[in-house]
Amino acid sequence: MINSYRIALAGNPNTGKSTLFNALTGLRQHTGNWAGKTVSLAEGTVKHKDKTYQIIDLPGTYSLFSNSVDEEVARNYIVFEKPDVTLVVLDATSLERNLNLALQVLEMTRNVIVCINLIDEAEKKGININERILTRKLGVPVVKISARNKIGFPMLLDTIDRLVSGTIECNPVQTTYSEEIEEKITTIESKIRSLVGNSISSRWLALRLLDGDEALLNEFNRRLVLNDQVRREA
């Protein structure tokens, strides 16, 4: 379908991610299976201007380092299924921990929108968030919303619209690690590029390999086998 885009929702548990999903998609929801795995994710659609968005509600996770089944599911979707936009939902009242996840997503994929939820609750508590500074520091759009009271939705949808139509571009600012780690990343990264090209962020992959992410390695091999099968059958 032309003018149809996939938007993945990622975020910590208890950030109102599902509230946002429900508020956006209303009752146009179903549970979809994807990529041959028996993992089902809630999917729904929302129309805005001339475009249709398919929203995928990823499991709520604290990180994306594949410590658990849920984290693997969310990670695999973002990296391998390549949604057009990954929307990271953050809780405005506990931004510090929530940003930790956002920073991980920025390493994995390019088209990211950071969506700060529960903004009304935060303001009641006297927490003021300057989204312009955050946008500049992160290199991706930062939008403030309240999913519960449907505040900030036009802005959010417009941002998505402008991102998928290429009016704005994301340049996620990567986290720099200690010199020692950066050196190691560089060593591995060049070799990764010759192996997977530009289909996956080589910096992220280098980090995961250094970290010893065996689950990711297995996923790679599984998908490689699958691709071979598809190619042979075609």
Binding site: S63, F65, L95, E96, R97, L99, N100, L103, Q104, G126, I127, N128, I129, N130, E131, I133, L134, K137, L138, T175, T176, Y177, S178, I181, K184, T187, I188, L207, L210, D211, G212
Partner: peptide
């Protein structure tokens, strides 16, 4: 070439960047 300390360093670094972002982007 990796070290067992790596994950600790990565997460610690991510958290200190989170904290920095909060320091500049959030006021009470």
């Amino acid at each position: 070439i990796s070290s067992p300390q790596l994950r600790d360093d990565i997460v610690q670094q991510l958290y200190s960047r989170s904290r920095e972002l909060c320091d500049v982007g959030v006021s009470y």
